[in-house]
């Protein structure tokens, strides 16, 4: 019983922290929006999403975002111990690449693991072998993953199971569509229709 109430308190504190973080985020966003509006700019949130990162590829070699320059890319976050949204999104991206045909040459698709404890380059390589081979799988140290997620304002957290013997992850599920200059253009949601997603990707590769 005591454990339950302790857990409840921990949960309460955790949720309060989440609420505070969201308020702070909203305040920053509104502040930036205000500034941008005064300066005559637009899309303040978009402008601050994305940026350079360095991670490890499935071949174990270092991967720098500099190698993405000059081509639009789609980047999303997930983990291989994910029963639903990650394999679904990977399959959808596989289908989209197929639908793009030769136009897919003008697009990079990147899957970043937010589970550095379990997702080694080998594990990612094995897992991604079920999907389009052009999808670039990246992993990194805890710090590197935290950094790239922050760059993209992607959220992730560990959720322990009942017995605390294992965990699952909560994470941002959106696919970020970035232009050839690394600027956010749009996002894909697995909840939107397949043709709507395809249209966004068609536009992305057409603009370059």
């Amino acid at each position: 019983m005591a454990t339950t109430s302790v857990l409840r308190n921990i949960r309460l504190i955790a949720w309060s922290a989440v609420a505070l973080a969201m308020l702070a985020g909203a305040a920053i966003y509104l502040g930036e929006a205000q500034k941008a509006k005064m300066a005559g700019g637009s899309l303040p949130a978009a402008a601050s999403i994305g940026g350079p990162f360095e991670l490890t590829g499935t071949d174990g070699k270092r991967f720098s975002s500099a190698s993405l320059a000059g081509k639009p890319f789609a980047i999303f976050f997930g983990f291989t111990h994910c029963p639903d949204i990650c394999p679904t999104t990977l399959l959808e991206m596989t289908n989209h690449l197929k639908a793009l045909g030769p136009r897919a040459d003008n697009l990079n698709v990147i899957f970043v693991s937010i589970d550095p404890e379990k997702d080694t380059p080998e594990q990612l390589k094995l897992y991604l072998s079920a999907f389009d081979s052009r999808i670039i799988g990246l992993s990194g140290t805890k710090e590197e993953v935290a950094k790239v997620a922050k760059t993209y304002r992607a959220f992730y957290e560990k959720v322990p199971n009942k017995d605390k013997t294992d965990y699952t992850m909560n994470h941002t599920a959106s696919v970020y569509l970035m232009d050839a200059n690394g600027k956010l253009v749009s996002t894909l949601s697995f909840q939107e229709a397949e043709d709507a997603r395809q249209k966004k990707l068609d536009n992305l590769v057409a603009k370059g």
Binding site: V159, A173, S189
Partner: peptide, 9 residues
């Protein structure tokens, strides 16, 4: 936009 998953304790 965030996928949340948890065990139903």
């Amino acid at each position: 936009g965030i996928m949340r998953m948890q065990e139903l304790k």
